[in-house]
Nucleic acid binder design. Sequence first.
RNA 1: GGCCCAUUGGUCAAGUGGUUAAGACACCGCCCUUUCACGGCGAUAACAGGGGUUCGAGUCCCCUAUGGGUCACCA
Length: 486
Amino acid sequence: MAGEIRTRFAPSPTGYMHIGNLRTALYEYLIAKRNNGKFILRIEDTDQERFVEGATDVIYKTLELAGLRHDEGPDIGGPCGPYIQSERKGSYMEYAKKLVDTGAAYYCFCSKERLAAVKEEIEKNGGTYRYDRHCLGLSKEEIDRKLAAGEPFVIRQKMPDTGSTSFEDAVYGTITVDNSELEDQVLIKSDGLPTYNFANVVDDHLMQITHVVRGNEYLSSTPKYNLLYQAFGWDIPTYIHVSTIIKPDGRKMSKRTGDPSFEDLLSQGYLVEAVINYVALLGWSPGTTQEIFSLKELEQAFDIHGISKSPAVFDINKLNWMNGEYIRSMTTEQFHNVASPYYSDALKSSGIDTFKISKLMQPRTEVLTAIPATVDFFESLPEYDIAMYEHKKMKTDTANSLTGLKAVMPVLEGVAVWDNDTLYAALTGLAQSLGVKNSQILWPIRTALSGKDVTPGGATELAEILGKDESIRRIKIGIDKLTRAV
RNA sequence: GGCCCAUUGGUCAAGUGGUUAAGACACCGCCCUUUCACGGCGAUAACAGGGGUUCGAGUCCCCUAUGGGUCACCA
């Protein structure tokens, strides 16, 4: 383990994996892989009040779906277990007491009521509340007496009275904060469990984490962590703080405002690979113009240097494009596999060759969920307005559409092989012999076949898929409609 | 409010004192074309503002503005 790069993903189980979390996990995974290191999963569940049933399963499932395999974790074990903080609670108190012994921490018996009162008083006068160190001056005897009497207590970190604390961040550089800004934060809560701030440091050390990746909301508490590392005499990890992912309106992505989680995106028709690729590039640049990266390629290319400091807007447009790129790079068979669930049962049992539909759909699909509404007309001809036959650029109107469709009938009846090429040759031949533009024949047919103004493929492609009988039936319907109107 | 951080086109972003300030998405136009897409070509569009330092500043320093974070026995 010595000398090895070790990163960790340390979510608290809330039951919702938002995109920012996913990106953090991804970066941690990539840093580990890039350096032949280990990627560790640790569950931070020290907040009993926020416990959510089944939430850890969401985490396992997401990592697995995303392909971010961890090397150590609650489900697979490892040399630094247990990997669930609530199962490690015994050791935190021990470490906190070590700090008490060296004077880097102290017992505090202040009630929440007293703290609240002090805070209210200070804020009433426009001041900034910070714990007033009421218990710092307690004598040894007094402390022992209170402890023996079973009084509830917390353990607080003692911040230096003077000077300042600096730390290095791989993204933001050197950051210095005046020690007077630092509060004597709680390390051990009155329920005996550690706070996140403390458990995090202890566990990162015990698990020999070398690179800590987290959201930059932790930037301001990092000096306190450094002080803890120093008090213990432990090595300080490389900090990598990443910016937030925001929405076009500038607000943070959140579950509350209905923003999609990783799983939501998948169910909205995005491919895992595309989401991973997109998220990797949200806040990181490879320094080249390459944009399409498989996870394997990211493992090779990822470099901390390319992480950006400023927040990134989650742009669904670009994700759409990227999803389309992934779809287009598939083989037809692969696309057919992912598209098939979006074809209705009725369509699949209609005798229509859905593989041919997939062929047409592949270059036209960005998001899988758009498929049903695009192919519905294959299943049954929708009601449509004959105004659709009028098209300026195609030089069609209801009158010449009607004559066109009538002229088309015998050609279709007589065609030898019912496929796109043959049909196209026959119909353009017809147009030529009639002295009209191809579009004047093909546009009315496409309209009659689909009843839609936009279709995935042209008249003859649709005709091939619909088959001779159905195509002719639909064209007759078109002729009827037009005849009644003219 | 104190402290910390950020700011290159609408969006993602390259850029580490000397560039005509890349590339991509979106948008717009043209080509291809049996609609739509795909593909190809092209156009519009940016260093937040002001002071310095320097022969020279998107790059370094200061101020201002705007945005974000943080100030819990939450993580």
